[in-house]
Amino acid sequence: MTLLVKTNEHGRRIGESHPRAVLTNHEVELMMELLDEREALIGEMEFNGARRATIHLQLHLRGLSYACLAAKFEVHKQTVAKIALGQRRCQTLGL
């Protein structure tokens, strides 16, 4: 069996190939879908004039707050925030 290691243009391991990776690439994709849903909900609620506390409550009730996503994926909420901001898992394998 051949194990493929994904690397960036500098030869550094990326994604689940990195030795310190906690999440699989599939889990990050699922999280990104939920983060997209979260952003759409925030945009819609802001457009309708919802207050910040109401938005936060709705995110929590729908399981889309950073804390809920962190619990779902068993990581720290700071990890979720960094993925959402593109500070983590921002490199992809160009095909």
Rank of each mutant, 00 (worst) to 15 (best):
Y66Q: 09
L30F: 06
R38P: 02
G63L: 06
T92H: 01
V75T: 08
Q78M: 09
C90P: 01
E74K: 15
Q58M: 13
R20K: 14
K77C: 09
R38A: 10
L23N: 04
I14K: 00
A53F: 14
E16Q: 15
I42P: 03
R13Y: 00
R88G: 01
L30S: 13
E27W: 03
C68T: 03
Y66K: 06
E37A: 09
G94Q: 10
L57N: 11
K6Q: 08
T92Y: 00
I55F: 15
P19L: 03
I55D: 13
I14V: 02
R51W: 08
L4G: 00
G49I: 06
H76I: 01
T2W: 12
K77N: 09
G86W: 04
H18Y: 05
L64T: 07
N8W: 03
H76N: 05
L93D: 03
R12V: 01
E74H: 15
L34M: 11
H56I: 08
Q87C: 06
P19F: 02
V5Y: 00
Q78T: 10
H10D: 01
F73G: 07
K6R: 13
A53I: 14
A40D: 12
D36G: 12
M45S: 04
K77F: 11
I55Y: 13
M32H: 04
C90E: 07
M32I: 05
A81H: 08
L41N: 11
N8M: 07
E27L: 11
L85F: 04
V22K: 10
L57W: 10
L3Y: 06
M32D: 07
E33M: 11
R51D: 12
E29R: 08
R13M: 03
R89N: 03
L93C: 09
T92N: 00
L85N: 13
T24C: 12
Y66G: 03
E44M: 03
A81E: 07
A50E: 10
R20Y: 02
R12M: 04
N48I: 11
T7S: 02
E37I: 04
E44Q: 05
L30Q: 15
V75R: 10
L93P: 01
L93H: 09
H56T: 10
A50R: 10
G15S: 05
E29K: 06
E37Y: 02
L3S: 10
L59G: 02
P19N: 02
A70Q: 08
K77I: 05
T92K: 04
A21L: 08
E27D: 15
R13L: 02
E46M: 11
L61T: 09
E29V: 05
A53P: 14
L23R: 04
L41G: 12
Q58L: 11
I55C: 15
L61F: 05
N48M: 15
L35G: 07
A21N: 08
A53C: 13
T2N: 13
Y66S: 08
S65V: 09
K77G: 01
M1Y: 11
L41I: 15
C90Q: 10
L35D: 08
A50W: 09
G49P: 13
R52F: 14
F47P: 02
T79E: 05
Q91H: 09
T92R: 05
L4A: 01
N8C: 14
K82Q: 05
L34H: 01
G43W: 05
I14W: 00
V5R: 00
